[in-house]
């Protein structure tokens, strides 16, 4: 059986086919929640934002123009929501005297607790520690660099598509990624020195 493309499914959703929307939801929920979790470092907020993304897609179904990939549209909505959430949190953090790091730390713990519902072995502890260092290194990046790295590295989105999602030129995307990787190289050095590879 041929797998329907996102475009075909979305065109059916435009005509009122709710089952096609459920197919799109099942197909994209995991990557989308994963993306938003990495972006905002808070599982609960990430799920709220992902829910909002799907709701907006559904509500805008009649206005959908198949001139770009469905995932470009999906991740553009998600990225805008995530960047707004990050900015709001930073503003709240400034108002609350810099509680952002604490909040992030708690969020990180929550993520680990939810993800690891099973008993933790020593190897798992080391792995979790390595994940924490990576997460903190990516969290420390400016929001757009963070989005570019996550889209490129974890969502497998190509540079042209990242450019459309972030409204940047190809060369600006490459420059953004270069600066992000330069920062990450420095921040991830403890993993190299600590032999956690």
């Amino acid at each position: 059986m041929a797998i329907d493309s996102d475009l075909e499914l979305m065109l059916r959703v435009c005509r009122g086919d709710t089952e096609s929307f459920e197919v799109l939801l099942r197909r994209h929920r995991s990557p989308l929640v994963g993306y938003l979790c990495r972006m905002v470092s808070d599982r609960s907020l990430a799920e709220d934002l992902a829910q909002e993304v799907f709701l907006r897609v559904y509500q805008a179904r009649k206005r959908y123009q198949p001139d770009a990939r469905f995932t470009t549209w999906l991740y553009r909505i998600a990225t805008n929501l995530a960047l707004n959430a990050i900015r709001d949190r930073q503003q709240d953090s400034k108002l609350n005297g810099g509680a952002e790091r604490t909040s992030d730390g708690e969020a990180g713990s929550r993520l680990t607790e939810v993800a690891d519902g099973r008993p933790t072995a020593e190897q798992e502890l080391i792995r979790s520690d390595r994940e924490r260092i990576i997460r903190e290194a990516i969290e420390a990046l400016p929001a757009r660099q963070r989005a570019a790295v996550i889209l490129h590295k974890y969502q497998g989105v190509d540079y042209a598509q990242i450019g459309k999602i972030l409204a940047l030129s190809d060369s600006a995307v490459k420059s953004l990624l270069f600066r992000a990787y330069e920062s990450l190289r420095t921040r991830l050095e403890p993993l190299l020195k600590g032999g956690q590879l």
Binding site: L25, S30, G34, E47, L111, V114, A115, I134, Y181, L197
Partner: peptide, 28 residues
């Protein structure tokens, strides 16, 4: 740079909670 790219692989993705679909459908 390749080393950084490999290190980043260690960050596992989060999965949606079991109630996610029903919450989206209820919201819709």
């Amino acid at each position: 740079y390749r080393w950084v790219d490999e290190v980043l692989d260690a960050w596992r993705p989060e999965e949606p909670s079991p109630s996610f679909d029903s919450r989206v459908q209820a919201a819709i």
